[in-house]
Design a binder for these strands. Structure first.
Lengths: 190, 190
DNA sequence: TAGCTCGATGACAGTAACTGTCATCGCTGT
DNA sequence: ACAGCGATGACAGTTACTGTCATCGAGCTA
């Protein structure tokens, strides 16, 4: 006999996703989320810094992973933007699989529906860009090249991900990333 | 004899800027800002949607201005990214003058110090990118090229602006924008 | 001039996000 | 057995933000 049901955090995430989808982000209170998860409001805030963060869990190791991928690709001789694109593509290969397409679509619909959630997503991306710029600098890329390459890499991912989410379940995100990278290259030209 | 002092909005902006700088964003309450401006909290929220927005006023005509500039530059035969960079450079020429360097530095220091304010800044930039992408599409640029060019243009501006703010008062933002655009071009290559 | 509408503000109550603090009580190691 | 730990609950407090009605000078109209 356990004192509490396990996986409180996961239950909160599930409850929040459901309620945000059912009633919208604004019309959902933290107390309601906690109640559906069989917990109290106070416990919600022990697991998540705020009402938005509950949608952005599992992002902890992400930056490190992509930084390592970028460093490796850079060591393989790729240019700055190509290195980031390669790291993102490899990451996408493992995480944004065909099975998770529907889940990602659902989540993005919720995020797109509310500016507060868009803001949170944007700052996560910006933080990632900053980390990737640092990685490039460690590989000898100067400034402002490193910062620009990182921003460009994130732009590639944003656009590719948007298309992946909007498109059919069969599409390959790594492929879309490669296409976006190519499109960026052609569009920066004359 | 007037019933109220004029320029309530401006007084609120000034008071907020001062208090955010003095005590920090978190430690400042809206009631304090309103009191310093000789108004009530309720009136603050009639002028600004929230506590952050008070730092982002005067942004109303910006999107239209840059969209028009981009359309014009595009008609002059520039490539998508170049067109946006040109529009941004011209805008910067008129707005981010040497005299406003100190003010901009001050404002950016406040924004950089608080994630909530960074989020707001990022969504403004994202909204601008979206508008610029629309402008490019109207000029026949396809997808995902239009979206990527817009994101790239915004990246150029972000990096250039960061350098302008961090650098000496004499630097020219339009010049930094042109340098960033060139750096992006070289970094997307092999 | 008298009355009327309008627009900016104040007054006040209410909701909900978030925080600080202390109590509770199974589990774990000694 | 028992002490301490860690996740949770209970509860009060602050503050961002909203809805609603009252106020009152300015300008319009008859």
């Amino acid at each position: 006999m356990v004192r509490w049901e396990p996986n409180a955090r996961g239950r909160l995430e599930k409850a929040a996703l459901e309620l945000y989808a059912e009633r919208g982000f604004d019309a959902t209170t933290v107390a309601e989320i906690a109640a559906r998860a069989g917990l109290t409001e106070r416990t919600f805030f022990r697991h998540f810094a705020d009402k938005r963060e509950v949608l952005f869990g599992g992002t902890e190791g992400l930056e490190d992973l992509l930084v390592r991928g970028t460093l490796k690709a850079s060591d393989d001789g790729l240019g700055p933007v190509e290195a980031i694109a390669a790291a993102l593509a490899e990451f996408a290969e493992n995480v944004f699989t065909k099975q998770r397409h529907e889940l990602a679509r659902h989540r993005q619909a919720i995020i797109a529906a509310h500016p507060d959630l868009r803001e949170r997503e944007l700052i996560k991306m910006a933080s990632l860009a900053s980390a990737l710029a640092g990685a490039l600098r460690r590989r000898g890329v100067g400034d402002p090249a490193a910062a620009l390459a990182a921003e460009a890499g994130i732009a590639i991912f944003k656009v590719a991900f948007e298309r992946w989410v909007a498109g059919p379940a069969g599409a390959s995100l790594p492929q879309l990333i490669r296409e976006s990278a190519a499109a960026l290259k052609s569009v920066t030209g004359p």
